[in-house]
């Protein structure tokens, strides 16, 4: 029991590390594409680890399935939004992050 508990903490801690790395990438990387890269890669893996860490603390099957479903949905959603943001950035290269049109 305690081994499973320790493993779950370990997984969650690893997940948080990936979240942190992704956030640092988002803040520090120079342009849209590398930021997206850092964010989506790190967050998908980070969330996956956190979800699996949480699954280890659950005994009910329905809750476990819900957790996996959440992870899958986030994977799909983040892949799609990443694609959309990248596509829009590719099409409008002049719209950089400094949109200071002061509305």
């Amino acid at each position: 029991m305690s081994i499973i508990s320790a493993l779950s903490y370990l997984l969650i801690a690893c997940g948080l590390f990936f979240f942190t790395a992704g956030t640092v990438g988002l803040l520090r990387f120079p342009d849209v594409f590398s930021r997206l890269h850092a964010l989506t890669k790190a967050d998908n893996l980070g969330l996956g680890l956190v979800v699996f860490g949480a699954i280890l603390r659950q005994s009910e099957l329905t809750v476990i399935l819900k957790l996996i479903l959440i992870w899958l949905l986030v994977l799909i959603a983040s892949a799609t939004t990443c694609y959309l943001v990248a596509e829009s950035a590719r099409r409008n290269p002049d719209v950089k992050e400094s949109r200071n049109d002061a509305v």
Partner: peptide
Amino acid sequence: RSEVLETFVHLLTPM
């Protein structure tokens, strides 16, 4: 229309 967005919406809406 982008394939990616289409697929996503197809998947997401019923969910």
